[in-house]
Amino acid sequence: MNDFIMAETPVDISALRRVLLVPEAGGFCSFEGRVRQTNEGRAVSGIDYSAFGPLALTEGQAILTEAKQRFALCRATAMHRTGYLSIGEMAVWIGVCAAHRDAAFSACRYIIDEIKQRVPIWKNEHYTSGETGWVPCHTF
């Protein structure tokens, strides 16, 4: 089963979360990334996300598999949107569960960092001025 999901439309997060509520897990951690109203000092109206679907799925799944091996996770799921998202819409969701909190916090952080570095997804920002621009690359 592929736990990494690429979605063209909004996803019911409560359903993804429910899968992670297992009796052996005492800790659940999630991260939500949302479209922000400014970037680099420019007013943003929305972001159009595009992806190389097949490779995004395999790379995303590889990251989740790595996270399960590195940290003592019970389960891990991640979802990334494509298409045009307005301010405040959820672009990425990550959920992990583990017996204890340390593994859950660390794995959640690992997964978002790796997604941002490796998964072939691109942001085309739309500005309130009417212009658009590809975000050059992530700054860490």
Partner: peptide, 29 residues
């Protein structure tokens, strides 16, 4: 670079019918 939907080395020899995608710096999240 991705060849046939998998990351590949830049010096990998190309074959007839290969699907090639050059991957700009990614900016998901």
């Amino acid at each position: 670079v991705a060849i046939n939907s998998a990351f590949a080395p830049w010096d990998q020899p190309l074959c007839e019918g290969d699907h090639v995608a050059f991957i700009p710096p990614v900016t998901g999240g």
